[in-house]
Design a protein around this nucleic acid. Structure first.
Lengths: 245, 245
DNA sequence: GCGATAAGGACGGACCATCAGACCTTTATC
DNA sequence: GATAAAGGTCTGATGGTCCGTCCTTATCGC
């Protein structure tokens, strides 16, 4: 009946359509989400998470599943729990040492940077359209604070993440906030491999300034260009360190 | 011991971190992936899918799980199977009528467009850096073909999708190809709600031309601007049709 | 001091998605 | 008629998830 000789080979992008479907379990995704937020400093050391019975409701999972994740993050040293009234689950202070990036992440570093470029440039453009002055004031304050952290990379990086995520929040797009958080999480492993002398951080922070200035005067094109340039910095360093493509 | 009064409220972006974790099952994701590819025309009507035993290996799932998805897509009219040697699973021809976009999609249309902007502009910038001339030749041919489809929107839209996905492929970034496919799938429901007179399609296709020209001369900034403008067209129409934010 | 309360911690049963594999049925080709 | 290649069917095992219940610990208020 169907005479077509199945020219499936002629269809491009099949690798994408038929690529393995890796569905994370609720447990895995929870570990990933919380672990990333902690490593990025979005959940800073010492802070208390919501109570388990409350948090599992927010996350939409069963408490036993959430506990699996909390126990896992406890064993890896990211969380610790105290019992009794007034107790709770706290982000560990200090945090465990960062683990070196996985082989898979290193192999796909270019891909990671590409997605990051898209997310960040898109955020820059939209922020230039929509960011409220009040939100920009907060971000300006962050840039000033960053100037005082040029000598200590760990602190700088955390504030840097907050700046970029804050920019995403200023767009008012929840999905871009999620995307930004994820890409920042993916980049962290790579970024920690690079040496960050104060001069480089200073230069990067000047880019922050120009970026925010462009956003404040609603100049989306310049904002996009500044952001792209800002990202190219780290990308070029990575290109020198890591296997080509 | 822990004196900190848990200033968790001070931490922004908590809605993102503690948002519900909805992990799709392998079955659901498979239906989604194949269904989207079919609706976008990436798997055109009449084409034969790989044999079940082969496809489940590619997708990394059990055959029974794959069959659930194939049966579901069969019942919805997207696929039909024939038995025996030389049989197989084929994309239905004609395709079932498109279902109206879900309430949830309509409510979050702005968010969908925002993510689309990021992906497409990022793709435009990277394509301007990396696209091989041969790939651009293919895309130019698509634009020419599009000129002949101005009167028939369904055909136009399918070729349009192939153009945008092809652009993503030209960047060499698998994740951007996936992201592009997903955003195109998400946009399709919205786009079908808009009237598309030939003049509008003609104008859109002229934007395609300018975009490809900018990419060919490696002008990333212009490519990004052209792409953003191209997307704004549909966005403004949607803004007029749909509830504000 | 004692009860109430709010937190983490542990357990058991039920359900369901998924996997792995064997087997059946249909159909075309040699 | 045998073989091969495809979809269709069935079953048991496994594991993730949910729900509810109960226990333990620690603080707060009377």
């Amino acid at each position: 009946m169907r005479a077509s000789p199945s020219a499936l080979e002629s269809v491009a992008s099949l690798e994408t359509i038929f690529a393995p479907v890796q569905s994370l379990t609720a447990f895995e995704e929870t570990v990933d989400r919380l672990g990333t937020a902690i490593r990025l400093g979005l959940l800073p050391p010492g802070i208390r998470l919501p109570a388990e019975r409350e948090l599992c409701a927010k996350l939409g999972i069963a408490r036993s599943t959430l506990r699996q994740a909390l126990v896992a993050l406890g064993q890896s040293g990211h969380l610790h729990a105290t019992r009794g009234r007034g107790g709770g689950t706290f982000v560990a202070d200090p945090q465990p040492p960062a683990t070196p990036p996985s082989h898979a992440l290193l192999a796909a570093w270019r891909d990671t940077c590409d997605e990051r470029l898209a997310v960040e440039v898109g955020v820059a453009m939209l922020a230039a359209e929509r960011a409220q002055p009040a939100a920009l004031d907060d971000l300006d304050a962050l840039v000033i604070a960053l100037d005082g952290m040029l000598a200590e990379f760990a602190a700088y990086r955390q504030a840097d993440v907050r700046l970029h995520v804050g920019l995403a929040e200023a767009t008012g797009s929840p999905r871009l906030v999620t995307a930004m958080t994820e890409t920042q999480g993916a980049m962290t492993g790579l970024i920690t491999m690079i040496a960050h002398p104060p001069e480089v951080l200073d230069s990067a922070n000047r880019q922050h300034r120009r970026l925010l200035a462009a956003i404040r005067r609603r100049d989306g094109a310049t904002a996009a260009r500044e952001m792209a340039e800002h990202l190219r910095g780290t990308e070029h360093v990575l290109a020198g360190l890591l296997p080509a493509v």
